[in-house]
Amino acid sequence: MTDLGSRQQLEMAIEAEAAALEAEGLDIEARSMRRQTWDRFRKHPVAVVSLFLLLALTTAFWVGPWLSPYTYDQVLAGLPNEGPSLSHPFGTDQIGRDLMVRVFTGGQISMTIAIVVALLTTFIGTVIGAVAGFFGGWVDNVLSALTNLFLIVPGLLVLLVVAIKWGGGVYSTAVILALLAWPVIARVVRGLFIQFKEQEFVQAAIAAGAKPGRIMFRHIIPNTFGPIIVNATLAVGAAIVIESTLSFLGLGVRPPTPSLGNIIQDYRGAIDSDPTKVLLPGLFVVLITLCANFLGDALRDALDPTSRRGH
């Protein structure tokens, strides 16, 4: 066997390799994980626009009603069914309430529900999925059975029954939706934990003497953040649609509290005579859902450190 190269040759080879990597577009300076994530995110212009649009909508929903001279339940005498004007840009509703303040407040309420649903489902789903995937065995069997049980429940039926008894409030609607949606995330997280548990870097940590807590919190959980955040983002989009549907059916947020869904319901009869009043809240539902989905897709790439898209 020939000697395969002295130390010096080795070092030269490494330098050549480093130079090649730099030519590929890697910075000489190390960039932090956060910085790299942002750099990958920026490569998705649609998602950047979505992010700013979502921030703009959120700001409008929360600041708008506060700046407005009207409140969402204030009836302005003698001004029902007004068209758009300077003082009422969206017009007024059937009983003379300012529609812009109602749509913005409705957006605020719909968004609150969506975010609470996303947070709750992510929390419940992550904890249950993580415990099932990490510990395996009978723990997994029990939790997976529970997950599947919730998954096969016909959601709309339960919603009908539960909403009649406990529905109507903002938070009760959110909790009901979360209770139906968590199994999806639990399954994803369980799969991730099982997948990462077998990875060689976890084996390496065990070989170094790491205890289960360290394996879970230092090695597995940080690697599941990406997919979990993506799922949470997508859950926001889905929750907005479901909340609107429920409120439209009268099973969600009850008037006079506005939500995007029940405002659409108010005007469904006026689609021909006064279409803007249905289309405006509908447009917000569509915008939020679209933006959340675009954002989720970009985050999927950005949060994956091995993704080289755009390099």
Binding site: A30, N223, P305
Partner: peptide
Amino acid sequence: YASLNPRMP
């Protein structure tokens, strides 16, 4: 590729 935790420096 698999033996190093992608999230740790």
